[in-house]
Amino acid sequence: MDIDAFVSAHKPTWDRLETLVRHRGSLSGPEVDEMVDLYQRVATHLSIVRSGSDQLLVGRLSALVARARSAVTGTHTPAWREFIRFFAVSFPVVAYRARWWWAVTAALFLVVSTVVGAWVARNPDVQAAIAGPEQIKQLVEHDFADYYSEHPAAGFAGQVWLNNAWVSMQVIATSVLLGIPIPYILWENAANVGVAGGLMASRDRLDIFFGLITPHGLLELTAVFLAAAVGMRLGWAAIDPGPRKRTEALAEQGRAVVSVALGLVVVLLVSGLIEAMVTPSPLPTWARVGIGVIAEGAFLAYVVIFGRRASRANETGDLERAPDVAPSN
Rank of each mutant, 00 (worst) to 15 (best):
F6R: 07
W14F: 05
D15F: 04
E18I: 05
V21W: 01
V21L: 01
H23D: 14
S26F: 06
E31M: 06
D33M: 07
Q40V: 13
R41M: 13
R41V: 12
T44C: 08
T44Y: 13
G52Q: 05
D54R: 10
R60Y: 09
A63S: 13
A71I: 08
V72M: 08
H76C: 09
W80A: 11
E82T: 13
F86C: 11
F91C: 06
V94Y: 00
R99P: 05
W101G: 14
A106Q: 06
A107F: 05
L108E: 04
L108Y: 07
D125N: 03
I130M: 01
A131V: 00
E134D: 05
K137N: 10
L139E: 00
F144G: 01
F144P: 02
D146T: 04
Y147P: 00
S149M: 08
S149C: 07
A154E: 03
A154S: 03
A157D: 00
G158R: 01
M169N: 13
M169F: 15
V171S: 03
S175L: 14
I180A: 14
P181W: 02
E188M: 14
V193A: 07
G194A: 10
V195S: 04
A196L: 07
R203I: 02
R203Q: 12
R203K: 11
L206P: 05
I208H: 08
F210E: 04
L212C: 09
L218V: 12
L219K: 02
F225V: 11
F225G: 08
A227C: 13
A228E: 09
A228G: 15
M232P: 08
R233Q: 15
L234E: 07
I239P: 06
I239V: 15
D240M: 12
P241Y: 10
R246I: 09
A251W: 06
Q253V: 15
V257F: 03
V265Y: 03
L268C: 07
V270I: 15
V270K: 03
L273D: 03
E275W: 00
A276T: 01
V278L: 09
A295R: 02
A310R: 01
A313R: 15
E320I: 10
P323I: 06
V325Q: 02
A326K: 11
P327M: 09
